[in-house]
């Protein structure tokens, strides 16, 4: 049972969270100018690192998406921060 730090609510049980995506993906646009390969890279390809990783998570109970740095092997959580800067 992992504890994840929601930047808005503090440490909470992992069952309250949902994994969204790896951090740092920018949606390629406009659609008409995006090659199939580029769209595939955005939509499907992943680094999926073994070890430290930076991800976007959703705290389902408060509805906020946020960034979290953690380790996919040890499960240690290095920290988290709100997506759009400081929580408001």
């Amino acid at each position: 049972m992992q504890l994840f730090p929601c930047p808005f609510c503090g440490p909470r049980d992992e069952t309250e969270f949902q994994f969204a995506t790896e951090a740092g993906k920018t949606r390629p646009e406009p659609a008409a100018e995006v090659s199939a390969e580029r769209w595939t890279k955005y939509l499907y390809l992943k680094d999926n690192p073994k070890g430290p990783t930076r991800e976007v998570w959703l705290h389902v109970t408060c509805g906020e998406f946020f960034l979290m740095e953690r380790d996919t092997v040890s499960h240690a959580v290095a920290g988290s921060q709100a997506l759009g800067g400081d929580p408001r």
């Binding site: 949902q18 969204a20 959703l58 389902v60 509805g63 906020e64 998406f65 997506l83 759009g84 408001r88």
Partner: peptide
Amino acid sequence: VVLRLEEWRQDRFDRSQVFV
């Protein structure tokens, strides 16, 4: 549907300008 709206609201729009 709520989560989809929230996801893009937070990721793409000015969150102070729209609320779900």
